[in-house]
Design a protein around this nucleic acid. Sequence first.
DNA 1: CTGTTAGCGCTTTCAA
DNA 2: TTGAAAGCGCTAACAG
Lengths: 333, 333
Amino acid sequence: VTSAEVAKHSGVSRATVSYVLNSTPNQSISAATRQRVLDAAEKLGYTPNAPARALRSGRSDVVLLLIPEWPIGAVLARLVEELTRALAGAGLTLVVHAHPRSARPLGDLWKAITPAAVINDQALDEAEVRAARRAGIPVITPAFRVDSGVDGGIGGAGAFADFQRSIGRLQAEHLAAAGHRRLGFALPDDDRLAAFAEPRLDGARQACAALGLAAPVPRVIVLNAASAAAAVGYWRGTRRRVSGVCAYNDEVALAVLAGLRARQLVAPGDLAVIGVDDIPAGALSTPALTTVAIDMSALGRHLAVAVVHSLEGKPFPPPPGSELAHLIPRAST
Amino acid sequence: VTSAEVAKHSGVSRATVSYVLNSTPNQSISAATRQRVLDAAEKLGYTPNAPARALRSGRSDVVLLLIPEWPIGAVLARLVEELTRALAGAGLTLVVHAHPRSARPLGDLWKAITPAAVINDQALDEAEVRAARRAGIPVITPAFRVDSGVDGGIGGAGAFADFQRSIGRLQAEHLAAAGHRRLGFALPDDDRLAAFAEPRLDGARQACAALGLAAPVPRVIVLNAASAAAAVGYWRGTRRRVSGVCAYNDEVALAVLAGLRARQLVAPGDLAVIGVDDIPAGALSTPALTTVAIDMSALGRHLAVAVVHSLEGKPFPPPPGSELAHLIPRAST
DNA sequence: CTGTTAGCGCTTTCAA
DNA sequence: TTGAAAGCGCTAACAG
């Protein structure tokens, strides 16, 4: 059912139908005609054809959030929720595509969708971003204000890493403030998470260096008690004497806690543990898990504003900085 | 950069460009011409215009997964991952839209996207589904084979509820087999989850009735130890004497475990607990959480096949049934 | 083997 | 206040 049919049924031209249905400004349509068109559209169940509209107007209302296929679902869910809401308020529709690493670059996506903008969360490499920009599609990369670090400036891939670094720093500084002099760092057993894990470890390193402590001792942990127990033994060995561990995230931290229990040890007395993400299970563990919470909602709102500004050719809003992350002290440290 | 420009630069017509770029069958293009077109496209950075293509061909390669804005991120992530992969194999691109309850029905979506198919996971009501179907878009609803229950038949909303019911049954039967005669049911503190929680509770009821046990005692639990401790006291009171609890999911179950600890009680001795979802934190808790795992990957594969069949006008594959859910016995029961 | 041509459904000047 | 008409970029008959 096309707009032409609506026109025929309401006895007007297609143009008029278009005017009415889009409430085009500077067009005075008589109330009667207007109603007739609306009724006909309703009766016929008219639905505008999205591709035709996009083709004609040269723009679409879709914003595409591209994420890698990393196992970060729970954290991202909050971002998506807020972003969807905020963009909807600006008349934009968010769709999310989890981009499998293995897949051919992005050919399929351009074939399938012409988004008004793309939010690239670690899914596109430089070349792909350039290609998208050349195709006239603004690519927004989650940017963080850089508070310090080698990168300098604002935005870009460096800012992402720097933000992750600030998380690791926050963890290490918290443990150091509690008197721990030798720290461990619990890494996840998933290569795909390196983009998060590496800079977090790096941030912990920076903090230790700045405080005159030895570099944190990294150890990869599989998500089970046995693996974590082995790591606990490793850290507490006479050679290392680690008394506090920064974990890549709360799940890894919970594994460390389980490893401690398996050895009849307790946090924070035998080993202090701090995670990242503030997942519900962390607050429910024994001892309750100290963690660094990331305000994904605020990030979502920032990204929405960035998208809208970008579409309107306005300059970007100042990106949020490390205030997006804050410590939630609980019993495990 | 349009196909016309590629045609001009390679000295052929737009049609030839189209043939080459789509490797249209039954068209013999000389290798030289072919290469010339390909080179020009490459050099100009040509990207086909998605709306134009969709408009012309009347179909798109996009499959839209519609989900409500429920906080079920972690579980859904596995579905999305598998679905993306499986659909990509069929040349289809999955995008996910979290549909806020509050939002206007679907007008925005049709304005923005014309998907080849929609997978409706509890986001669309009957009227919206009809509207989409009328617009020629196949709507696939995650269907489960109905093994028993009042609904009968295969597929539809009844099947979803029945699948959820089978999960509750599995939980209750497991506890009953362990000798528990009076069961509790821990409900989540989020209305949006009722579509899952209600039938699960219902399934537990069915199982109890079938086994000659009293109906399970429901109790809403907020995700903190205090709320759960209160519930634990309630269940263990002399009036109720509940000795085993089915939890809506693993997070709620972990809260119950925390509530037990707060009262110096232990599972399963004082109260057995069983969850749903098999989240990593469940395996790491003390005691390790018994749970019902749902094979979202298998569901994803099934949905992908259903979409492809639907697009080809072929009959649906037989839906998976309750074998998607299986018990993972651990220490908490 | 390649070019011409007719639209897909919609928006939007420009005329009436 | 409304209608006629052009064309967005692409594909697929149909000619040559």
